[in-house]
Amino acid sequence: MRPSLIPGPIVVGRAIGELAVRGLLVKYVVASLFRVTWGYLAALVIAIPFGLTLGMMSLGEMAINPILQVLRPISPLAWIPIAILWFGVGDVSAIFLIFLASFLPLTVATMNAVHNIDPVHLAAARNFGVPLRARVADVLLPAILPQLIVAMRIALGVAWLVVVAAEMIAVNSGLGFLIVDARNAGDRYDLVIAGMVLIGVIGVVLDLLMRRLERLDSVRWGYATE
């Protein structure tokens, strides 16, 4: 390794400034966040009801859980060829990869969280004859929420990891694209490092935002006492 080839902080700072001036900074960050938002939201919307259902029906879980467990260790990047086959080269493929990456951990975590509900709470809900809708909204969901928020945080981290990789292949905007493009178009390693720095900083900000959810009054009971 020749350290002289790694740009120093000043050069990288200047590269970020250049991106800002060319209007690419905001454009690429927004493009990446856009993909993460859609892939991640789709995963939330599908994985939580799916995990709840599996957690409540032991038969369904017995059927589906082995499949989930086999899919889980497969890197979302292994799905790239299939994503391109199904959705073509473009945003949808990238969003699909992000969806996959966050869907599996969210489903498994929701299912496990349902198993961890204190049976006393389920018995009480039954005793008061609460209708199914209220039982889900007022008992099941709030009971799993503390664990779910932790899983959501982890899943968002994974989604952010994957967006960068997905953009290296399938699209022409975003921070992942910036890194590949900077290297291909004339070995601009200052821009490569700039892209890495931006990815890291945004990842931290996303995680901090998710952490705020853990301070909600209705979930604090689920974490070790302050």
Binding site: A123, A124, F128, P142
Partner: peptide, 18 residues
């Protein structure tokens, strides 16, 4: 179970999220 007769558990029966 029926809401005309209610079971009271030890205090862990309260819903901590409410």
């Amino acid at each position: 179970p029926d809401r005309r007769r209610i079971f009271v558990f030890q205090e862990r029966g309260v819903f901590p999220w409410l």
